[in-house]
Design a protein around this nucleic acid. Structure first.
Lengths: 243, 243
DNA sequence: TAACATATAACTTATATAAGATATAACACA
DNA sequence: TGTGTTATATCTTATATAAGTTATATGTTA
């Protein structure tokens, strides 16, 4: 049991958080959906409304749920206007917000090398998809992305699907595979442009580029994407905030 | 008044947040201090304990206050072990946590150029201090910092004070001037090393460096520091997380 | 009657208070 | 050294009111 003095003690609201997360993992509520009202959830989990509220408050603070007074509580989605740029940290220096255009270069099926497999929690040699693309601002190529995802999680993914999809890649993952990205870790370095990148980003070889390595996670902190972005930061910056 | 229907309505807990922040600005409680208990604050502000708690919860979420069950609620401080590295995002790639050693290069008094003045909310030409230093990991120089602060806020600052201080720079600002950094915004680019930086960081000229521009804020979102860091990211990365 | 505006009701989350039980930490004292 | 006391934050429940949203009913008007 979970008595207050037991070593594995978790407060009730934390257990409710886990139960809600499990429903998200199971796909009971999908991104964009409204979840049941606080009162309904309180009845379902047999706790008070205040305890459900605290659980939802924390999930909302983590940007997993979104509360809307009068309307309900919704599963956060990259398809929504407001959060479609949530994970894009490259911005124009002049402050103007511009959504980049994407040019898909290739989609291939590969075997995960050790490094990639480790990051994605797969066996070495597991099947993965590799997506290459070029993001441009004002028609100027600025970011070259190589994106790796487990084939087992994204069964049936192919180039045409991506090409025909109107929104962002994370929006695509949500609508076609029900996989929502909720968190990401990035490691950034300054590196010299290699010949291929220099060509794609239209810079001189050896020019300084920002190399942004990302691992992205879905519900339950499961890693489902590993990407490397090479950014030409002339008139653009990687913007971040800390507290 | 603050009736619920007035256009300037703010919830009670938000007003309490402001009152607490004002006490922090006034220096009534300094970094590291315990603030009064929830019950005392409730009596002082004539609201319920729950309302005080909600205000403190939010300030704790912003890392301005730190709650410790059984002990009390404390003003966050960069002098504490746990948060001394809170704003240092450069980490070793091998995962080992190492606190860099600092070599102070110079402390000068200057007049703020337009760009700096704007960021620090000063008049152009206002007096500022400029601190230059070199941070090393394992004896290898990795970060060259140029740090600018308003002279009016840091009256009497000089090189010897910094040199004799044992802790981090932000800890120094707190203990000598009562200024606590609570938030920072950073803009990052990849740039080629100039001759001076190349020499200091022991890299070839034109080598790619990470350029990290930061504006740091104290209570009430007042900007009090503008710095530019140039980082040699061989075997080191700038690490960040998003959600 | 049909179209439109308004009022009402029913639902949601948000705010605020109160009260009691529990966990943690510090201290006094035997 | 240990044991109880006290003070703190934490957790849980309960209740009430406010405020935002939507659908429905009720008019009013053309």
């Amino acid at each position: 049991m979970n008595t207050p003095t037991s070593p594995s003690f978790r407060p009730l609201y934390d257990q409710i958080k886990i139960l809600i997360t499990q429903s998200l993992i199971a796909g009971e509520w999908r991104p964009g959906d409204a979840i049941p009202s606080e009162i309904d959830l309180a009845a379902r989990f047999k706790v008070s409304q205040g305890t459900v509220r605290k659980a939802i408050d924390e999930l909302a603070a983590e940007n997993i749920l979104i509360r809307r007074q009068g309307k309900g509580t919704f599963v956060a989605s990259h398809s929504q206007e407001r959060s479609s740029t949530r994970f894009l940290r490259i911005a124009r220096d002049d402050g103007i917000t511009e959504y980049p255009s994407s040019r898909l270069l290739s989609v291939t099926r590969e075997r995960a090398p050790e490094h990639t497999a480790k990051l994605l929690d797969l066996r070495t040699g597991a099947s993965i998809f590799c997506i290459k693309r070029l993001l441009s601002f004002e028609g100027m190529p600025r970011i070259f992305d190589e994106i790796h995802v487990p084939a087992s999680t994204f069964k049936g993914l192919d180039e045409a699907m991506i090409r025909n999809f109107p929104g962002s890649l994370y929006s695509f993952f949500e609508t076609h595979f029900g996989i929502a990205m909720i968190r990401a870790e990035e490691h950034i370095k300054a590196v010299p442009a290699g010949p291929a990148e220099a060509d794609l980003l239209q810079v001189a070889p050896q020019s300084p580029l920002l190399r942004v390595d990302r691992v992205a996670f879905t519900y339950g902190d499961r890693p489902v994407e590993w990407r490397r972005g090479l950014c030409h930061t002339e008139r653009f910056s990687y913007v971040t905030e800390m507290s």
